[in-house]
């Protein structure tokens, strides 16, 4: 029953892991924080968000792979926070924050990685196609009501033929796991896409709104506004305000 133990090197430190374990799991055992968007412990690895990339291989010919889909192998050398990795992560977060600014998860990640510029034309997409909901539906809810459709720029998550699916049980699992639906953010300055205020505001919106689960009904997406300008769009924000 016991899996084979193999040796790897993580950020220069030797480490023993079970064969078949992916690099992300190994790093988390070591307490190394690798950011992820499309990964969830209870679901299969997908490798869509590319935030969990790490650099592997010997110093002179390294390559960059997504740690959630790459399995540990004997003698593997891994660098989780090399310059190349960090620069790339920052650029991906800049892309994310410009296209999906309404997700607090993304705003938090961007702030934590020091993304201070948002140089691309603002878009307000609700979905970054991480596919958590698709896997939730298929693997945990055994429903296969939604899936990816289209290719490239037309790629989207939908039901077959965009019609109500007979297989959907309205369990809400997809919304529960969605990093855009489950916590919304528009920033104190909604004209730009970059918020970063979670770390600067006092109290920070992380503390105030962390327990909030706004399931993205129409009209939501405004969790922080300047003082006295709260929109009681969903009825929940005022609740929080009184609590605070």
């Amino acid at each position: 029953m016991s899996a084979k133990v193999i040796n790897i090197t993580m950020n220069g430190l030797p480490m023993e892991v079970y064969e078949g374990m992916n690099v992300l799991e190994a790093a988390r055992i070591m307490g190394i924080d690798i950011p992820t968007l499309c990964y969830d412990e209870g679901l299969s690895s997908y490798g869509a968000c590319r935030l969990c990339i790490v650099e592997i291989g010997p110093q002179d010919r390294t390559k960059v792979v997504s740690s959630c889909t790459y399995r540990c192998e004997e003698g593997l050398e891994i660098r989780t926070h090399s310059k190349r990795v960090m620069d790339t992560r920052k650029m991906i977060l800049e892309l994310l924050v410009c296209s999906t600014p309404g997700s607090k998860t993304i705003q938090d990640l961007a702030a934590a990685h020091g993304v201070i510029t948002a140089r691309f034309k603002p878009e307000h997409e609700d979905c970054m196609l991480c596919g958590l909901c698709v896997r939730m539906c298929k693997e945990q809810m055994m429903a296969t009501a939604i899936d990816f459709a289209g290719r490239g720029p037309d790629r989207r998550i939908t039901t077959p033929f965009d019609e109500a699916s007979a297989l959907c049980r309205h369990c809400g699992g997809c919304m529960f796991i969605c990093p855009a639906c489950s916590s919304r953010c528009m920033g104190p300055d909604a004209d730009t896409t970059l918020c970063s205020s979670c770390l600067n505001l006092s109290p920070s919106c992380v503390e105030v709104y962390d327990h909030q689960q706004c399931w993205m009904p129409p009209g939501c997406g405004t969790c922080i506004r300047p003082e006295g300008d709260y929109l009681p769009a969903t009825g929940r924000i005022s609740e929080v305000k009184t609590e605070a």
């Binding site: 869509a48 590319r50 991906i92 196609l129 991480c130 990816f148 289209g150 490239g152 790629r155």
Partner: peptide, 8 residues
């Protein structure tokens, strides 16, 4: 022609 899976 990108399949669209990788965000990058």
């Amino acid at each position: 022609e990108s399949c669209g899976k990788c965000y990058s």
